[in-house]
Simulated scan of single mutants.
Amino acid sequence: MKLNLNIQPLSSWINVKNEPLIISGPCSAETEDQLLSTAHLLAATGKVSVLRAGIWKPRTRPGEFEGIGSIGLEWLKKAKAETGLPTAVEVANAKHVEEALAAGVDILWIGARSTANPFTVQEIADALKGVDIPVLIKNPVNPDISLWIGALERINNAGITKLGAIHRGFSSYEKSSFRNEPMWELAIQLKTLCPELPIINDPSHICGNRELIPYISQKALDLDMQGLMIESHIDPSVAWTDAKQQVTPAALEELIAKLSLRDPESNNEAFADKLAELRKQIDKIDDVMLQKLSERMAIVEKIGQYKRDSKVTILQVNRWDEILKKGTAFAKALKLDLGFTEKFLELVHAESIRKQTAIMNEGKTEEEIVEAAAAKA
């Protein structure tokens, strides 16, 4: 199913000085001097197309710096006048929208916490009716693509056609090297559902530290994202918010210079022919894999019937442990990634459990049982 969004291409609503689109500036506008100094240095790189700054900062806990407030809009206005860079700010309610528009802000974005709340998104959408301004929407904090899509639809329904998404990663309880797990598959899913939707990557919030930003930036471009939003501060060591994930303008210039831009398609006939040949090989292997999975599930169903008739539990931990150990050992010998192998085996095992559960419950899946119980409640 494709998303039915009315969207103008990125090139029609913003002048990109260089590809990819680079949106940069401090996490927070702290002082007039800090913002103006950073803006001038970013403009001097010739690589930055949009100046960003946090004006209102929704913090996890009270007592932390929550943004300089409306006065920062005047500083942004001055920075735009002096550097020629269009400006972008985050808005979280109708008042923010009104003030940002009055100050001549060029691009608005909706943050991850706001995207997660349809009431907040609708309030912003209502404030934007009749306005022609680009709006970027960050993914919600949690990995819920429906919330992300819902926010895009609400803003689009308000008449905003200069619309884009920002991929900033997702919260996870699992220990990770990232501040927010990229979960690239969700961004790819959104791109598949709406190929014309511009997606900007936010490596600063994904990484949480400046060391990983080059890697994530390159990967985002390799996945055909249209731009990057990277936080930059004249002196990150004294930044009032998110000091570790900000880079200096000089470091940003160096980072961008090292990025490799690759075309999504090639006009080279020899390349196209070779790629088509290799893809045919993959298609054949995929067909065999799916056929074998189907055969495996047919055996799983027989096992489920046998367990049911013999009054044996579905889950047998020793057997699962055996599958996992054997599978990962074989994967290692085949030089397959162990993390990928474990996830694949877990998915197959989960589907086996689901099928056997249905057999134990007279053909009813767990979802059907839960829905029936909820209907009776």
Rank of each mutant, 00 (worst) to 15 (best):
N142C: 01
L190Q: 04
A112R: 02
L163D: 02
I137C: 04
S172C: 12
A151W: 01
G104P: 09
A125M: 12
N139A: 12
G150E: 14
H167V: 04
S114E: 11
A116Y: 01
A127S: 11
I199N: 00
L163H: 04
N139P: 08
S172R: 02
A112V: 01
T161S: 14
W109Y: 15
G164H: 03
I110F: 04
G164A: 12
P203M: 11
A102F: 06
N157S: 14
P203R: 11
V141Y: 00
E196V: 13
I133Y: 06
P118N: 05
K138P: 07
E123S: 10
I149M: 05
D132W: 00
A103K: 08
T115V: 11
I188T: 13
E196A: 13
I166N: 01
N201S: 15
K138W: 04
P195Y: 00
N180K: 09
N156C: 10
I107T: 01
A103C: 10
S114I: 14
L190Y: 02
R113H: 14
W184R: 07
G130Q: 05
L108I: 09
K175F: 08
E174C: 04
L193E: 05
I200R: 02
L147V: 00
P203L: 08
M183Q: 12
A125T: 10
K162P: 00
G111F: 01
T192Y: 11
A158M: 07
C194N: 05
G169M: 03
L128M: 11
T115R: 02
K95T: 15
E181T: 14
P134Q: 07
T192E: 13
L190K: 02
V131R: 09
A158C: 08
E181N: 11
A187C: 08
W148P: 04
A103D: 11
D144T: 05
H96E: 10
N117L: 08
R154E: 12
P198W: 08
A151E: 03
H96R: 13
S146Q: 13
G111V: 03
L128K: 08
T115F: 02
P182R: 03
E99S: 11
L186I: 07
N93R: 03
E181F: 08
W184G: 11
A187L: 02
K191N: 10
D144M: 00
A116D: 14
S172T: 15
A158Y: 06
V121Y: 01
K129L: 02
P198Q: 06
I107Y: 01
E98H: 14
L108H: 06
L193Q: 11
R154I: 01
L147K: 12
A127W: 06
F178T: 13
S204I: 10
W184F: 13
S177D: 12
G150H: 10
E98K: 15
L136G: 12
N157P: 04
I166G: 01
H96I: 09
G130A: 03
N156M: 08
P182G: 06
A112I: 01
N156V: 07
E99D: 15
F178L: 07
R154W: 02
S171E: 14
P195E: 05
Q122A: 13
D202R: 07
G150P: 00
P118V: 04
A102E: 13
D144A: 05
V105A: 06
I124F: 04
D144Q: 09
L197N: 06
T192K: 15
D106T: 07
I188Q: 15
I107K: 00
K129T: 13
Q189G: 00
L190G: 04
S114Y: 07
A116T: 09
K175V: 10
V131W: 03
C194M: 03
